[in-house]
Design a protein around this nucleic acid. Structure first.
Lengths: 282, 282
DNA sequence: TAGCACATGGAACGTTCGTTCCAAGTGCTC
DNA sequence: GAGCACTTGGAACGAACGTTCCATGTGCTA
């Protein structure tokens, strides 16, 4: 039974261990720059490999950071934890929450039998998830920034996307309308062109995936010739199309059996729309 | 130095440890039914909680299954592993592959600063991923089966979805066309109705999310009155709409700032389309 | 019913890993 | 240049955990 302390120990380090990953990250940035050499190495390595902590031992993480295990232990204590085990608990809990029974459920759906509808759902969900991860991993932030800049200066934003890409274009049309951004969807109804609607000061978002739609490319070329900025939303192998656009945004859609979930393309398009709307208002 | 065995030991159990999660699952179903009581308990528990293995100790898994740790050890060896540690390695590797640096990347995108376009991408990707997981978790397989059955019997499939739901409907139209399934997209161009296209033997897929589109509901009611099967694709709170459909499929779309990624709805719609096409061919 | 083969559970063992402690090293200040 | 405070790295300790072994229990067969 510990004796009651007469006064708070002034030497006691503050025991505010981060309770969430975000709090952990905040603490990391707070400490940045005011740490001894070895401890700073720990911080840098962990900041860049946060996802490995849940499944690694101290020795492994320390080796990755190029420091002895004892230095990593110090670091954990400076972060507010009692030790590595407590810090690891935070990441393990986050990891197990992110996949509560999702993996099992997917497996059960797949096990429903080939051809069973639920198997298809599992496959498409998996494809969609991978596409999302690929988007987050491979996103070209510079190109995205440039696209936002170009579009936020535009008077009217033209949207072109046919066949497989039409859902993306039409959703952009809906979102821009909701956000109060002037946009025009080139829907190709009745074979009527809307090319003459392209006016100086406008910009075009052209969405097309292999095999590329002739109508979309023709419209992009047309806009280019008129000197309008063209933002191209397409898949990675389309670098040969780079010449006809001012800015190329690529998304890697994982497909399952010839069909794509479009989830990555829509997520990117949505982000673009919201960012453009935000910048126009300022 | 072990002596060279004159003959293969017949008592030696086959050492073909599963190398993938799928192989593991196959082995699990192979063994099902021909296992002693306690070992069967292990198999059952693990089949339903496969995602917990990577982060649990033998003792924890054994307690979950209601068996002593030694029984769990036996089970691991019967599955072909040298022990629990080796089995756990399989699941840990699968887990670390599924999140290579994705989580870190997302964090970095978010750290780009509020209002920065890449932050938006991170948020939408996260929302999309959660929606996908929710779909896998909450999918009503019975309803999906029923929907496939109803639609595979239909002569022509009508598609209704306006405003926010229009991208889903238009993608369904594209996919059905690709698959050779007769489908008609009610696009509402020029305010022209296509109600008279609803003929006996047809079926309707109505897609609408709160706030529900009047046109879609009106079309669904109309189809219902004519005795056509109606499949409703909507969000969970819409149980009050249940009465106007023969089959209700719900998707929980996590939204970020008023906009939804639609990824779960599209994944479900795609699955529905492919399953219907497959069943019609047989 | 006796015998045998197999299943079962607990206790003991050995390894791995987190943690602590102390001696050596480094850089700064007076 | 001496002293001091802080940092550093390795070795030793202790706990947690995987693993094995053996005594006991159970069910089937002759």
């Amino acid at each position: 039974m510990p004796p009651v302390l007469p006064t708070d120990d002034p030497a006691q380090t503050p025991r505010d261990a981060p309770q969430t990953i975000d709090a952990f990250r905040d603490r990391l940035t707070d400490l940045d720059g005011q740490l001894p050499r070895r401890l700073q190495q720990c911080a840098d390595h962990i900041a860049q490999h946060m996802d490995t902590i849940a499944l690694s031992t101290v020795a492994q993480v320390a080796q990755g950071a190029g420091v002895p295990p004892s230095a990593m232990m110090r670091f954990c204590q400076i972060m507010g934890f009692s030790g590595y085990a407590e810090m690891q608990r935070l990441f393990r809990e986050a990891l197990s929450r992110s996949a509560p029974d999702y993996a099992t459920r997917l497996a059960n759906l797949k096990a429903g039998g080939a051809g069973h509808p639920s198997t298809l759902v599992a496959e498409f969900v998996e494809a969609g998830r991978q596409s999302m991860e690929a988007l987050a991993r491979d996103l070209d932030e510079t190109a995205l920034d440039q696209a936002v800049t170009l579009l936020s200066r535009a008077r009217t934003i033209h949207l072109a996307g046919f066949r497989r890409s039409f859902p993306v274009a039409s959703y952009l049309s809906y979102v821009f309308d909701k956000l109060g951004v002037p946009a025009l969807l080139h829907d190709g109804v009745a074979g009527l062109g809307q090319r003459s609607a392209l006016r100086p000061g406008d910009a075009l978002i052209a969405i097309t995936f292999a095999p590329y739609s002739d109508e979309t490319l023709a419209l992009a070329t047309d806009a280019r010739d008129r000197g309008l900025p063209v933002i191209l939303l397409t898949d990675p192998p389309a670098t040969r199309l780079a010449g006809m656009a001012d800015c190329v945004l690529t998304v890697t859609e994982i497909d399952f059996g010839a069909f794509r979930s479009l989830s990555a393309a829509i997520a990117l398009a949505l982000s673009l729309a919201v960012a453009v709307a935000a910048r126009r208002e300022t």
